[in-house]
Design a binder for these strands. Sequence first.
DNA 1: GCGGACATGTAAGGAGTTACATGATTGC
DNA 2: GCAATCATGTAACTCCTTACATGTCCGC
Lengths: 175, 175
Amino acid sequence: MLSAAPATGYELSQQFKGGIGFFWNASHQQVYQQLAQMAKDGWVQYETQSQTDKPDRKIYAITNKGREALSRWLSTPVAPSKSKDALLIKLFAGETLVSVAVLQEELRRHRAIHQKNLDKLLVIEQEYRSKSAAEQRALQLPYLTLRRGITGETAWIAWADEALAALSEQKNESP
Amino acid sequence: MLSAAPATGYELSQQFKGGIGFFWNASHQQVYQQLAQMAKDGWVQYETQSQTDKPDRKIYAITNKGREALSRWLSTPVAPSKSKDALLIKLFAGETLVSVAVLQEELRRHRAIHQKNLDKLLVIEQEYRSKSAAEQRALQLPYLTLRRGITGETAWIAWADEALAALSEQKNESP
DNA sequence: GCGGACATGTAAGGAGTTACATGATTGC
DNA sequence: GCAATCATGTAACTCCTTACATGTCCGC
């Protein structure tokens, strides 16, 4: 993010709450810890901006050394992310230990959250589509990450509907 | 997993390499550490089985206390998993620092891995479909987690194709 | 008066990874 | 001869979360 534009820790935290949060996340505590670490390593620098009414802001910017480290990382293959989905553990193991109703409710709750995420991403997509062709070209790569979010959440919701249908069928068979 | 059947640490590790690995993962080191911790907490017990030709096996089984702890957790709502996908960071930030060709190659590499995962999951699905109706009913919930894997990987691959198409178009526009 | 946005952190601990360590058997 | 499978672990470290800590301004 700092390679795109300088920012304060607070602003970076806000970005994680927005669209970027779909594929990467860090709490505000972690952001401040990592900024301190990266400053120590010489990857970023900061300027303090005094404010009279609010606390001072520390505006962080990437350094050449930081940009080099980032370039090296970008050229190094990474392993695909491994998902850890506790909800699926519940479905996998829950059978004998809790009622199907409990699992259904949890599924519905998660479905609602994913639907909300999807709605947010679709709004961002509409904003993108209203931009000029030149702007769209400039934002092509971030747009692809947005598309990953949209297709991923859509698939999640479709699966949840499939799963909920299967569970309610089972319930009707053996009441 | 131990709530389904007793197992050794090695066997649990193997399960993570199989279908379960799609939604949860633990290295063999972590498995042994967690088994030791859970034995200390009284959630699991083990019997040592001597073997003359190979190292002794420790067969772990869940205890009542462990089953209670699991039930409690199953009834507690969990937060949806947050993904951390380094590949998307690369797309998001890579634009100015590496060539599109590097990103395309990384995308293709990941696509191949996801395709391999999908193929494995589809084999497991075929095995499931060849079982009797009674067996299928008994395995309904684990099957739903398998379906999540299949729909999730399918969506990932479809997105990768979309992204690769967009990137190769861009290349043709400005050679 | 209260909650939320703005703005920054520290401390402790739990979760997970990487490196190290050992040793037999089986198949190419 | 070498890699893979079976079978177990320890030690050190990093990554990430939870809890604690402070203070102002703005709108309802």
